[in-house]
Amino acid sequence: MNIFRLLGDLSHLLAVIILLLKIWKTRSCAGISGRSQILFAAVYTARYLDLVTSYISAYNTVMKIVFLVASYGTLYLMFLKFKATYDHNHDTFRIEFLVLPCVILALLINHDFSALEILWTFSIYLESVAILPQLFMVSKTGEAESITSHYLFALGTYRGLYLFNWIYRYYAEDHYDLIAIIAGIVQTVLYCDFFYLYITKVLKGKKLQLPA
């Protein structure tokens, strides 16, 4: 464990907590893409199946369980408890255009052609693009609440910090995983436009509003 990975994980944890608290406190999931949340639940499910096959550390196990529970909890709040507040008219990104290419890519480019490895690879590819329905929703409505912006910033920062973690591990531990690294770069790049708006607008106390 190095500082970049720890900060990355904490940023990831902060993101999911912000999202759950936002929905719980406001009793509303307005502005949140249920489609992105479905994709994230698929990502955690496919990746953390190794909870039952291999033990890494207490930290690793606890974090995996937290992300799984938080993810399904978010789906429960969005699609059952506060269903009436779900803004489905603006959440129209076709997720099959993300899921199918990720399935095909995972079958073609992986470290090993075994079920768990392919599911892990699929989850890495899918995570890199899972935020697109949410970003599409923000661009469609032209704005995002501040709390939603903080959520997106924390979530984007997490994989960005992992990039530094991978650079560190390459030199310090001779460890690297090209699939994770390339997907992580793609994932972080997708947030760049948002990061720019967040820094120039939200941090200065303004609402995140896209130019007309």
Binding site: R5, S57, K64, D112, E117, L178
Partner: peptide, 10 residues
């Protein structure tokens, strides 16, 4: 370099 199968990250 070590094998690429190590899955110790989240």
């Amino acid at each position: 370099l070590k094998p690429k199968y190590l899955k110790d990250e989240l």
